[in-house]
């Protein structure tokens, strides 16, 4: 009897792990899309609104879903004069604190890292070019993420169950 309960637990754990992995594959393109839209909004705020960077990030963050919302708002908070941080430091700090809550990978983080070094440091045309470049790179990542999702989402679900089954078989 105890054996049976153990086997069911292992199977359930394997299945859940598989579903979690599949969920991550589904979330990544969704968050990437949201990030791209956010950067495009930032471009508009800079080119037409002349909005200062901290205000723009806060405003954009307010309209986003978690976990990107916290990321943007934290970056904006760190830019307040109390911290004495530069824009680059503020964004890096927010990335280090909150990136792990997203489903995105290091490739996307690198894009934002590079962007943080130039945000706010040049005239509008220059800013727009840098943001467009970052958006381009993210779109590339998004396409790859969608491919991964198509390839691995279902497979992860089955794989979780199968690995659970394998462990049960090996144990007994």
């Amino acid at each position: 009897m105890l054996n049976l309960i153990g086997a069911i637990l292992v199977l359930a754990a394997g299945t859940l792990a598989g579903f979690y992995q599949a969920h991550q594959f589904a979330l990544r393109p969704r968050q990437l899309r949201e990030l791209i839209l956010a950067l495009q909004r930032l471009e508009t705020e800079i080119s037409y609104g002349f909005t200062p960077l901290p205000d723009a990030l806060e405003r954009i963050g307010g309209g986003l879903k978690e976990p990107l919302k916290t990321l943007f708002i934290a970056a904006s908070d760190y830019m307040s004069p109390d911290y004495g941080l530069s824009a680059e430091d503020s964004i890096r700090k927010a990335l280090n604190m909150h990136w792990r809550r997203t489903s995105m990978k290091t490739a996307e983080k690198d894009v934002l890292d590079r962007l943080s070094g130039v945000l706010g440091t040049s005239d509008r045309q220059d800013q727009i070019k840098h943001i467009a470049l970052a958006v381009g790179q993210l779109q590339h990542e998004e396409a790859a993420a969608r491919e991964d999702q198509a390839k691995y989402e279902k497979m992860s679900k089955s794989l979780g169950l199968l690995i659970g089954a394998l462990i049960v078989i090996l144990i007994f």
Binding site: P52, P54, S86, E88, G120, T121, D123, R124
Partner: peptide, 20 residues
């Protein structure tokens, strides 16, 4: 100097076109 410029422009040099 890079940091100073960043801080005095409120991280937003692009809003300072008239000032520049």
């Amino acid at each position: 100097t890079r940091r100073l410029l960043d801080l005095i422009s409120n991280h937003s040099l692009y809003t300072m076109e008239e000032e520049l």
